[in-house]
């Protein structure tokens, strides 16, 4: 019985890509050992032991809830260098679109994401699929990555539409969101292009991550910092005026004869409404 190798990697793109690197490297070296052992093959027992399951014998996780039997657990130390090698390989062999899918899947909060990412990369590199790997939907791992990619992409899209800035006393625009997945860094390019001449902060209050953009400069991701709650509640003079205007606008624009609250909730779920100006979060 060959053991399942479980790699425990950090929950970040670098961490998972390092995990992919380490798992792959170990598989390759084990196979090399096996082959060199094969030829002076005296020890049948040893051969049996080395008979590997290939990629099927590998699992990547971000944390261990329950240790299982017949598994060897290996913690992975995150290394930027290894991650970069993996990213480069994905870019050249599987194409940038696949990379973007994988990246979005990694940003999700699904516990099975690391494993799905590993096996999708493995399937892409070991078959002829190449750049078309993401359309190989009958492969369960690819289907999983596809599903996560869609989930995260949809959530990003929703926050691009539904987040609301409030103008603080010093003119900075401040938005607070509580996304399920780590989307805050994917929101940044859109808003930086749109609001080049504004200073703005988008704060993810679940993960305490913020995108900070200074007028005419590129954005930065700030992690682990708490926003001064006193400061963020001091709005500029005109802020409440425009909030009221927009709230009134949303009321008058609706046609009474067509009222359909269920449709509204379907299009704009309550979890978003909680943070939106026009639904009374001010």
């Amino acid at each position: 019985m060959t053991a399942m190798n479980v790699y425990i990697c950090e929950d970040s793109p670098e961490g998972i890509f390092t995990g992919v690197y380490d798992a792959w490297a170990e598989l390759v070296s084990r196979r090399r050992e096996y082959r060199s052992d094969l030829y002076p093959s005296e020890d049948a027992q040893k051969q049996k032991e080395y008979k590997d399951k290939g990629h099927e014998g590998i699992r990547l996780v971000n944390f261990v809830e329950n240790y299982e039997l017949f598994c060897s657990y290996k913690p992975v130390e995150t290394s930027g260098e290894k991650a970069l090698k993996v990213i480069r390989t994905i870019y050249s062999r599987l194409g940038h679109q696949t990379y973007e899918c994988l990246f979005r899947a990694i940003c999700s909060n699904d516990p099975a994401k690391a494993d799905a990412v590993y096996h999708t990369i493995a399937a892409g590199l070991s078959t002829k699929a190449g750049e078309g790997i993401m359309s190989h939907l009958s492969n369960p791992y690819v289907a999983k990555v596809f599903e996560l990619d869609r989930k995260v992409g949809n959530e990003t899209g929703h926050y691009i539409e539904f987040l609301r800035f409030k103008e603080l006393q010093n003119g900075v625009l401040y938005a607070e969101i509580a996304p399920e997945n780590r989307v805050v860094s994917m929101l940044a390019p859109h808003f930086c292009d749109r609001l080049v001449n504004e200073n703005f902060v988008i704060h993810d209050c679940r993960r305490r991550e913020s995108v900070v953009h200074e007028k005419q400069k590129s954005w930065v991701l700030v992690t682990g910092e708490e926003i001064d709650s006193d400061f963020k509640s001091r709005y500029s003079m005109t802020e409440s005026f425009y909030q009221e205007l927009f709230t009134d606008f949303c009321h008058t624009i609706s046609i009474k004869e067509r009222e359909n609250i269920r449709l509204q909730k379907q299009m704009l779920p309550l979890k978003f409404q909680k943070y939106m100006t026009e639904f009374g979060s001010y």
């Binding site: 539409e161 949303c250 359909n260 609250i261 269920r262």
Partner: peptide
């Protein structure tokens, strides 16, 4: 295109 909000009649704003 982007829809920033939805009115009570379910139409986008």
């Amino acid at each position: 295109g982007l829809c920033h909000s939805f009115a009570a009649d379910g139409r986008c704003i």
